[in-house]
């Protein structure tokens, strides 16, 4: 039982680290602000949940698990709000997104 818990915890932590690294690479590689925001979204949702679930499996203490659940819920509730606020502020200040030429049908000026 203990071994199964340890293995699944290690697996979750590994997946979380890999997703985090992918997000970090994405934030460097993607061409403009709006696409980078999607890369940051990966690290905010699945990577954070995977790492926190991995930590939950490490510790049998009830209060620690509840606190980890609270951090997870907070992350999941806060991250869309922040992303939306950033996107709206950037759009209001006139930062044009880099759009694909083929898909650009509704006349938004592509920069």
């Amino acid at each position: 039982m203990d071994i199964a818990l340890n293995i699944s915890s290690a697996l979750c932590l590994f997946l979380g680290s890999f997703l985090c690294l992918s997000g970090g690479v994405g934030i460097i590689r993607f061409p403009d602000f709006y696409t980078r925001m999607h890369a940051a979204g990966v690290t905010d949702t699945l990577a954070a949940s995977m790492i926190l679930i991995g930590l939950m499996l490490q510790n049998p203490d009830a209060i620690v698990i509840l606190k980890l659940v609270m951090i997870l819920l907070m992350t999941l509730f806060i991250s869309p709000t922040t992303s939306h606020a950033m996107a709206k502020a950037a759009m209001n200040s006139g930062l044009q997104p880099l759009l694909d030429k083929k898909e650009n049908k509704d006349g938004v000026e592509s920069s």
Partner: peptide
């Protein structure tokens, strides 16, 4: 998530941003 991670590792040519 799986979709976006795939696109991240494939690089710039795999994405086509839309608004």
């Amino acid at each position: 998530n799986i979709d976006v991670v795939k696109k991240i590792w494939l690089g710039k040519d795999a994405i086509s941003p839309v608004l």
